[in-house]
Computed example of a mutant assay.
Amino acid sequence: MSNSGLQAAYDVVIVGGAVVGSATAYFLASNPDFKGSILVIEKDWTYQKAATSLSSSSIRHQFSNPLNVQMSMFGVEFIRDFKSISAVDGEGTDLALHENGYLFLANNDRAEAILRRNWKTQTDLGAETALLSQDDLRARFPWLMADDLQLGSYGLSGEGWFDNTGLLFGLRAKARALGVTYIEDEVVGLERAGERVTAVKLRSGASVSCGVMVNAAGTHGTRVAAMAGLVIPVEPRRRSLFVVDCRDRLAGKVPLTIDPSGVFFRPEGQYFLMGTEPDPDPAVDPDDFDVAHDEFENEIWPVLAERVPAFEALKVIRSWAGHYDYCTLDHNVIVGPHPVVTNFLFANGFSGHGLQQSPAIGRGLSEQIVYGEYRALDLSPLGYARVVKGEPFVEEAVI
């Protein structure tokens, strides 16, 4: 690998140049109070196997924990404004946000109570979420089989899907225009002196000194942490997605719909995108991208054929598998500095929420680096301290 122009030392080294790493680089470089140098190390500039590229590209406000709601509320405003935010020489990226909403469905008393409780949390924070009775569901979504449903929770605005790679490459281009250095290389080791990481070692043979290191390496984040002698409860979990054709059209606006079973679907152009959390859901090799085709046949299609009668006849057009960097403690990101190795910052374990939370996480990490504290939004409940204590950050609305 050729890294011409690489300096011997950088104030901030970010390991992982996909959406989280690039968001951190952008917020740092655009902060007038930051005067340092930034290096982003990404092992594959095609990003073909990055979680960013292989995700379902969605964003929602419908979480149970106020902090997750607030992060996504900031995320959607960032996405809406991204064309101006990402502008370089007058040209920015429109992320084509489709605000069709999320629709969570409940078919028992416990699930209904959760939706009602979460609705209160969301609307108190300013999210536009509506609770829909069985009759409301039938009237608004005539294609939906609602006979067993007790309640629906529907995002009226600020939820939907968008151009995932547009966000990544727009952030990357803007960060580079602001002076951030990107190299295509792989971190193979870290040097640590006492309570500080002092340098990163690259596969190309180079060694780069650093003032602060950010671990934004996705499913490889556990391995990067181990290089510094640190442990995080994060592992790769495979998620298979299927794009299908349906002979019959669904009338009206179709949201990203989550069946009570956890199976979900949303429009994807003229087709539909479908997926589920597999059961069982074991850890996988981070380089295993084989599609679990049996999930569609055994878990997805049977459920959705009952929920949406038009889905009785479907044809799979294409499919792919991506990975969650899955936090086994509580399915939420671990973010911020390690309590002992204080110049090692985490951004790991998003468990499927990395794309939508990347603006808030990037902003928060940049504040930690520049000011030593969070300012816009306190992310400390998501810090490493909860891992040490074994205290989960509770979130009931996990997909």
Results as ranks from 00 to 15, higher is better:
residue 280 P to D: 12
residue 290 D to W: 05
residue 195 E to Y: 07
residue 257 T to F: 09
residue 290 D to G: 06
residue 246 C to R: 10
residue 227 M to G: 02
residue 247 R to G: 10
residue 248 D to C: 08
residue 280 P to Y: 13
residue 203 R to G: 03
residue 223 R to I: 11
residue 297 E to W: 07
residue 300 I to R: 00
residue 305 A to P: 01
residue 317 I to G: 02
residue 268 E to P: 09
residue 193 A to T: 12
residue 286 P to L: 06
residue 258 I to Q: 00
residue 212 V to L: 03
residue 229 G to N: 11
residue 217 A to I: 04
residue 301 W to N: 07
residue 300 I to T: 01
residue 196 R to E: 10
residue 199 A to Y: 04
residue 311 F to E: 02
residue 199 A to V: 09
residue 279 D to T: 12
residue 253 K to I: 13
residue 309 P to G: 10
residue 201 K to C: 09
residue 212 V to A: 00
residue 280 P to L: 13
residue 194 G to D: 11
residue 316 V to A: 03
residue 301 W to K: 15
residue 260 P to Q: 14
residue 285 D to W: 09
residue 293 H to V: 08
residue 216 A to Y: 03
residue 213 M to R: 01
residue 200 V to G: 02
residue 242 F to I: 15
residue 200 V to K: 00
residue 222 T to R: 13
residue 308 V to L: 05
residue 265 F to G: 05
residue 227 M to L: 15
residue 292 A to M: 12
residue 312 E to W: 06
residue 280 P to Q: 14
residue 241 L to A: 11
residue 301 W to S: 13
residue 200 V to H: 00
residue 276 T to F: 00
residue 241 L to M: 14
residue 241 L to H: 10
residue 251 A to I: 13
residue 202 L to S: 04
residue 217 A to F: 03
residue 279 D to S: 12
residue 245 D to N: 14
residue 198 T to E: 12
residue 293 H to G: 00
residue 306 E to K: 15
residue 225 A to D: 04
residue 258 I to Y: 09
residue 274 M to P: 05
residue 206 A to Q: 14
residue 258 I to N: 02
residue 300 I to W: 00
residue 224 V to T: 06
residue 231 V to D: 13
residue 309 P to F: 08
residue 306 E to T: 12
residue 275 G to S: 13
residue 285 D to F: 08
residue 296 F to N: 03
residue 267 P to A: 09
residue 305 A to W: 04
residue 231 V to N: 07
residue 296 F to L: 14
residue 263 V to W: 02
residue 219 T to H: 02
residue 209 S to R: 15
residue 215 N to F: 00
residue 218 G to Y: 01
residue 293 H to S: 04
residue 204 S to M: 10
residue 208 V to A: 07
residue 297 E to D: 14
residue 240 S to L: 07
residue 212 V to R: 01
residue 217 A to V: 03
residue 308 V to H: 00
residue 198 T to P: 03
residue 290 D to L: 09
residue 223 R to P: 02
residue 257 T to D: 10
residue 246 C to F: 05
residue 254 V to Q: 05
residue 294 D to F: 09
residue 316 V to T: 13
residue 197 V to P: 00
residue 195 E to F: 08
residue 310 A to S: 13
residue 285 D to P: 02
residue 251 A to M: 05
residue 244 V to N: 01
residue 281 D to I: 03
residue 263 V to Q: 06
residue 228 A to I: 05
residue 299 E to H: 07
residue 219 T to W: 01
residue 295 E to V: 03
residue 230 L to G: 06
residue 266 R to M: 13
residue 271 Y to H: 15
residue 277 E to P: 00
residue 259 D to K: 04
residue 211 G to M: 11
residue 283 A to I: 11
residue 299 E to F: 04
residue 199 A to T: 05
residue 237 R to T: 11
residue 240 S to Y: 07
residue 281 D to P: 02
residue 258 I to H: 02
residue 219 T to I: 15
residue 293 H to P: 00
residue 251 A to F: 10
residue 271 Y to L: 13
residue 227 M to W: 01
residue 240 S to V: 04
residue 277 E to Q: 11
residue 314 L to H: 03
residue 216 A to Q: 06
residue 284 V to Y: 04
residue 301 W to Q: 14
residue 193 A to Q: 14
residue 240 S to G: 06
residue 218 G to E: 02
residue 245 D to T: 11
residue 198 T to C: 05
residue 313 A to F: 10
residue 239 R to Y: 12
residue 282 P to D: 12
residue 295 E to Q: 15
residue 196 R to H: 06
residue 268 E to N: 15
residue 302 P to G: 04
residue 301 W to V: 04
residue 215 N to K: 05
residue 307 R to G: 01
residue 211 G to S: 08
